[in-house]
């Protein structure tokens, strides 16, 4: 039986269409869910772990005469989500898959966790959704 009314959102897939998605990416909707529910916990695993790693990435592309500077910026959204009070985990193994230095660039506030440890806590949540 769940011990809280919190929802655990597990995000595995990432980078799903920079040009066509722009602001409306997964984390945008996660923020909205947190605003509505007040109790979102996020696990970043698979390639979504990259969202928790700081990077000198400029979210912009030139197409014809336009600089499209509204590409998704998941790190900015993650910082906002953390400021909103959401809890964000990243799975250790997936962080390592991004290279040995990735963990040195983890966004402040993101918690590293071993996958098995988090699964053990699924029953604490009212809802566990892959998102």
């Amino acid at each position: 039986m769940a011990t809280t009314d919190n929802t655990l959102l597990i995000i595995e897939r990432a980078h799903r269409g920079a040009v066509e998605t722009q602001f409306a990416d997964t984390l945008f909707f996660v923020r909205e869910l947190h605003r509505q529910s007040g109790g979102i916990h996020v696990v970043l695993r698979g390639l979504a772990a990259s969202y928790a790693v700081d990077t000198p990435y400029e979210a912009a592309l030139r197409i014809a005469g336009r600089t499209l500077d509204t590409l998704p910026d998941p790190r900015r959204l993650l910082r906002q989500l953390l400021d909103d009070g959401a809890t964000v985990f990243v799975e250790e193994a997936d962080l390592s898959a991004l290279g040995a230095r990735a963990r040195e660039r983890l966004l402040p506030g993101v918690r590293r966790v071993a996958g098995a440890d988090l699964v053990s806590r699924w029953s604490d949540y009212a809802r566990v959704w892959f998102f």
């Binding site: 920079a18 990077t55 990435y57 290279g99 040995a100 230095r101 660039r105």
Partner: peptide, 10 residues
């Protein structure tokens, strides 16, 4: 860069 991989880790 988009995927936050450091070139030193390649």
């Amino acid at each position: 860069r988009q995927r936050a991989v450091d070139a030193e880790d390649l």
